[in-house]
Every structure is written in structure tokens, then in C-alpha cells.
């Protein structure tokens, strides 16, 4: 799936930060977006917050199921890669993502070491559906 988008001149943004061990977040989004005693960071809560349609919390496989509307630019929701890259690499989310969670490419991606293909980590939603709430 992973095609290296563009090859650009050097001086662009370069990344620093801690080394995330390969399997800190084995299922990607839903391994990091969890509820703890301090905060509920599950994506259903975030969807409410950013006023996403109910289609977000009704998706079963995160983020592969989001492709229904976010596969690429032509999808009704736009390309998920761009939305997610942009938000996680722009402050204030970036600060939290990197400093608090040691986030890195491999928090969401995984290298298939036999084929040399980078893949997206994925997992089942970690919340109960709210069927009745109208939106």
C-alpha cells in the first residue's frame, strides 16, 4: 500500500524525537486512543468533539474501514493519510503525540520485513455503539 509520495529537496521538515519501540501500539490508532483514569482519548469521544458524522463511530475497523469515505482525495471525506498526518505532526497534537506517547511513524505503520512493504496498523473499534443518538 505504501507508495513513497514524493521525493523532495532536503531542507524540508525533518523529524526528531524518541525512538518508539516497534510494538508499543500493535493495533495503531485504537492502541493509543484509549480511555485511562486521567483522560478518555478514544476516537468516538474525539469524533463528538470534532463534530464528525455518526459514520465515524459506526466504523468497525480503524482506520481501514474509514477508507469507505477517506480512501483518497476523491472520497467524500478526503484522504485520511493527509488528515491524520497533518493533525499528528502539527501542534498542539504533535506535542502530545511525541512527548507524551513517544509517537512515531511506526505507531501507525508497520514494516512487513519479508516483502519490504510498509503497512497501516489496524484494529477493531474500542467503544460501544450509540445507536440512538441522532446526528
Amino acid at each position: 500500500m505504501m507508495r513513497v509520495a514524493r521525493i523532495l529537496a532536503p531542507a524540508l521538515l525533518t523529524l526528531t524525537g524518541g525512538i518508539a519501540l516497534a510494538d508499543d501500539y500493535p493495533q495503531g490508532c485504537v492502541s493509543c486512543h484509549v480511555a485511562t483514569e486521567q483522560q478518555d482519548m478514544r476516537l468516538n469521544v474525539i469524533f463528538d468533539h470534532i463534530e464528525h458524522s455518526m459514520a465515524g463511530q459506526r466504523t468497525l475497523l480503524i482506520p481501514t474501514g474509514c477508507a469507505r469515505c477517506h480512501a483518497d482525495e476523491k472520497g467524500v471525506g478526503g484522504a485520511l493519510s493527509k488528515l491524520i498526518h497533518r493533525s499528528h505532526y502539527t501542534d498542539p497534537v504533535q506535542k502530545k503525540f511525541i512527548n507524551e506517547f513517544n509517537g512515531d511513524c511506526v505507531s501507525c505503520h508497520k514494516m512487513d520485513t519479508d516483502t519490504g512493504q510498509a503497512e497501516i496498523r489496524s484494529g477493531k473499534r474500542n467503544w460501544q455503539l450509540r445507536i440512538l443518538s441522532a446526528k
Binding site: A5, A9, L13, T14, T90, H109
Partner: peptide, 20 residues
């Protein structure tokens, strides 16, 4: 094994790049 040794992120565009 860090991706970011070879890759960078163009955050405004939301696009991963290859350093060169």
C-alpha cells in the same frame, strides 16, 4: 530502524517525503 532517518513529514500538506 527509524523511518525518520530517511523520511520527513511535510506537515501542512500531510504528506510523507523522502529526504535527499
Amino acid at each position: 530502524g527509524k523511518c525518520a532517518n530517511c523520511h520527513a513529514m511535510d506537515a501542512p500538506a500531510g504528506e510523507a517525503l523522502v529526504k535527499s
